[in-house]
């Protein structure tokens, strides 16, 4: 769906390298997270995809089409874009903000209103209450949801998100993120999301692209980065939160072979799709049982820890 080939970008008169020969491909419906510290080149990479920046070398394709083949305005209207500080227009109402791209695409008025209302309802901003308010009157979390609705309004197949939850306080961030994940508008889209928040990357990314100094350090699933790091940078980057990340990214079914079989029936049940983190939360009071592939297994504290240790070896 989105393909980058040997893309590089230099800044300033001394041609400082910001992005150094990056290639990757994002499949349709996939969410790729560009993760890294400030100045690693992740935002620069993102901005080259909707041509807010022009690549100095290399090629970018969307749906097999070179992005240079379209005028930048036309290209951008087909790509949803969410900014960290929302960038909502203070002189437009909420519904005008959301309807911006459709109006640039010259949809007719009724269609714009219908689409705007649908999106506002889905994002828990009832049109009756919020359609004619101005962004300044909303809370930070609400503004962020309007920013998301604006990016989704014209139903673009591709969504670029630049630190979309970065400006929110930690509590709001978690709840907005959870809503975002559950949104049906999101599920079928191809998304590239930039963040410096490891937890966010692991929660939202189908795959994660960890970058440093303009280069890709590793591109893979959460489990790849955790258990099969490509280099010491990758492992040391994840070390501070390793235990939590591991528990959240390991599922019961991944440990199935190492878990003991259930001997006595237990009333509390979990599914094999649950993460170890969820299992741990459940077994703080009593052990639970899981049924998977016609087999029942018992999970208690000791058994779970032993299974994790066995998995990692």
């Amino acid at each position: 769906m989105i393909k980058l080939e040997h893309v590089s970008k230099y800044f300033g008169p001394e041609k400082k390298t910001a992005v150094d020969d990056i290639s990757f491909e994002v499949k349709e419906g996939e969410t790729l997270v560009l993760l890294g510290t400030s100045g690693c080149g992740k935002t620069t990479t993102l901005r080259m995809i909707n041509r807010l920046l022009e690549a100095d070398s290399g090629h970018v394709y969307i749906n097999g089409k070179e992005i240079q083949s379209l005028p930048p305005e036309i290209l951008r209207r087909s790509i949803g874009y969410v900014l960290q500080n929302t960038g909502l227009f203070p002189h437009y109402t909420v519904s005008e903000n959301i309807g911006l791209v459709p109006s640039l695409l010259q949809w007719d008025k009724n269609r714009i209103r219908e689409r705007t209302t649908t999106l506002m309802d889905k994002l828990r901003l009832p049109a009756a209450t919020y359609a004619d308010t101005y962004p300044q009157q909303l809370s930070g979390g609400q503004q962020q949801r309007v920013g998301l609705a604006r990016a989704l309004a014209a139903d673009p197949p591709v969504l670029l998100m630049d630190e979309p939850f970065g400006a929110l306080d930690p509590l709001t961030r978690i709840s907005v993120r959870r809503e975002f994940k559950a949104l049906d508008e999101i599920s079928h889209r191809t998304i590239i999301l930039v963040t410096h928040d490891v937890e966010e990357a692991f929660e939202l990314g189908t795959r994660i692209c960890l970058m440093n100094e303009g280069k890709i350090q590793q591109l893979g699933t959460a489990a790849d980065l955790l258990f099969r790091p490509a280099n010491t940078f990758v492992s040391s980057f994840l070390d501070p939160q390793r235990l939590q990340l591991e528990l959240k990214s390991l599922h019961i079914r991944d440990l199935w072979n190492w878990l003991p079989a259930a001997t006595s029936p237990v009333s509390k049940q979990l599914t094999a799709q649950s993460t170890c983190w969820e299992a741990l939360e459940a077994i703080t009071t009593q052990p639970v049982s899981v049924v998977y592939e016609q087999e029942q297994k018992l999970i208690d504290g000791n058994g779970l820890m032993a299974a994790i240790a066995a998995y990692k070896n």
């Binding site: 807010l52 305005e73 951008r76 209207r77 500080n85 960038g87 227009f89 203070p90 002189h91 604006r150």
Partner: peptide, 27 residues
């Protein structure tokens, strides 16, 4: 004018003319 707003306007696909008339001049 807030650079976030102008960047958003560009990112949404406004031409320079649209940006001037709909965003920069009103603000």
């Amino acid at each position: 004018v807030d650079p976030n707003v102008t960047e958003a306007a560009t990112g949404m696909g406004m031409s320079r003319r649209q940006m001037l008339l709909k965003v920069q001049l009103p603000l």
